[in-house]
């Protein structure tokens, strides 16, 4: 009996539609965020994360409609990230029904935003997303991890562990740590990175990026020290169900909500 480790499916939303497919056997409209969210909620997901990848500014408001529609029908915590640049952006999402917001690039370009947002809304609803990679170090020196922005394309020179500590001190309530060097590879999280960050901060760390099988989810928690694990493709394409993932985590001795 203890606080359960969380399993969080992540859905990419472009102009109000889920993209990258959600493969449920009997789903009518895989692009409908409400239907996808309901399925995950009913299947036992502990939270849901929507990542707004809408490129065009014209369509930015569609995420508000998505959040409103999902929040009216899915009764688990909902996080929304992508394109958040101001306290006003955050207020709109929270008012629409999001429980937490994910701040990524804006935290790097304007670290004050994390402090402001946390003071306004409480740190429990501010998730700072950190995209990091292992970087080459001279032989014999310790491993180093660096922050990248703009979908992993732009190096920042920031040390990931130091940055994580700074974000926690600035009022982040949680960190969504994506192993950018693993994203899409299906070979598992960057566990040394995950462990380094989880040990350095005393706020929850959500591990993301690279999950290809259920053992990877378990490793993120048992080896990486994460409090929650996030995955997208293994669920969307029907390779595994939320129930199977929970069962595997339970089997590995991890406390989960079943």
């Amino acid at each position: 009996m203890a606080l359960a480790k969380r399993l969080i499916p992540c859905l990419d939303v472009d102009a109000g539609r889920v993209v990258k497919g959600v493969n449920f056997v009997d789903i009518v409209d895989a692009g409908d965020p409400v239907e996808a969210a309901k399925r995950y909620g009913d299947a036992g997901a502990d939270e849901l994360t929507f990542l707004d990848i809408t490129a065009s500014n014209d369509n930015r408001d569609t995420i508000i409609d998505v959040v409103e529609a999902v929040a009216a029908q899915v009764f688990i915590p909902l996080t929304v990230g992508g394109g958040i640049r101001s306290v006003a952006d955050i207020r709109r999402l929270l008012n629409a029904g999001a429980d937490k917001v994910g701040i990524n690039t804006a935290a790097v370009t304007n670290p004050q935003l994390v402090r402001e947002a946390s003071d306004h809304f409480g740190n429990q609803c501010i998730v700072v997303a950190i995209d990091a990679k292992s970087v080459e170090t001279p032989e014999g020196s310790p491993e180093r991890f660096e922050i990248f922005t703009h979908g992993g394309r732009k190096p920042t020179g920031l040390d990931a562990v130091a940055w994580a500590v700074k974000m926690a001190e600035s009022g982040a309530g949680e960190l969504l740590l994506t192993s950018m060097d693993r994203d899409g590879t299906k070979i598992g999280f960057n566990l040394p990175l995950t462990r380094a960050v989880a040990e350095a901060v005393d706020i929850p760390v959500i591990a993301s990026g690279g999950v290809g099988n259920l053992q990877h989810l378990c490793d993120g928690i048992t080896e990486g020290g994460a409090d929650a694990v996030l995955a997208a493709s293994i669920f969307h394409f029907g390779e595994y169900t939320i129930g199977e993932a929970k069962a595997a985590m339970h089997q590995a001795g991890i406390e989960v909500r079943q």
């Binding site: 009996m1 203890a2 606080l3 359960a4 969380r6 502990d46 740190n123 429990q124 309530g173 949680e174 005393d202 706020i203 929850p204 409090d227 929650a228 909500r257």
Partner: peptide, 11 residues
């Protein structure tokens, strides 16, 4: 591992 706030699913 018991972080503050207490956030998540508990019995």
């Amino acid at each position: 591992h018991c972080k503050i706030p207490h956030m998540g699913w508990n019995n």
